[in-house]
Amino acid sequence: MTRGRCAMLAALVWGCAAPVSPCGTGLAPVDLLGTWTYEGDQSAPPATLSGTLTITSQAGQAFTGTLDVTQMDGSGSHPLSGPVTGCALDAASVDFSALFTVEAAARRHLGTVKMGVTMDSITNGTWVESGSSGPIASGTFKSARQSGP
């Protein structure tokens, strides 16, 4: 094997090696399955966000779903949607990323989960969208469960 091929293989191994997931598949600290409203805003440029967060599967801490929102800014309303992958860090914190289909950027979210008698919600949510050249936008969000498992 040539030195170049060795370097390429090493690079691939380095690039694709997967560590142990922080999201365990044991007992779920909080049940997130279901449909959640999603309301938020973007700091700059100013915009509002409104839509639906759907968690379709959850295995332990890890969960997947979709996010479908409409972003209203100075140029009008724009639909954004894409798959979601996330982790329930503990019973009160949820961390997920949405990867919108129209943008090659991931929007990272961190929120506080509150399970109430009358309503389950995610509050104090913040998000940052980072692209290949750094953060693009940031903002806040909140959610309320509409329907559960």
Binding site: A11, L12, V13, W14, G15, C16, A17, A18, P19, S21, P22, L89, D90, A92, S93, D95, R108, L110, T112
Partner: peptide
């Protein structure tokens, strides 16, 4: 492209996690 990505999180309850992994 190949490289590495890392992700950190720290909750008000004191939980902190750091994950670093490869990406291609």
């Amino acid at each position: 492209s190949i490289g590495r990505a890392s992700r950190t999180a720290a909750t008000p309850s004191g939980l902190a996690s750091t994950v670093e992994a490869g990406r291609a």
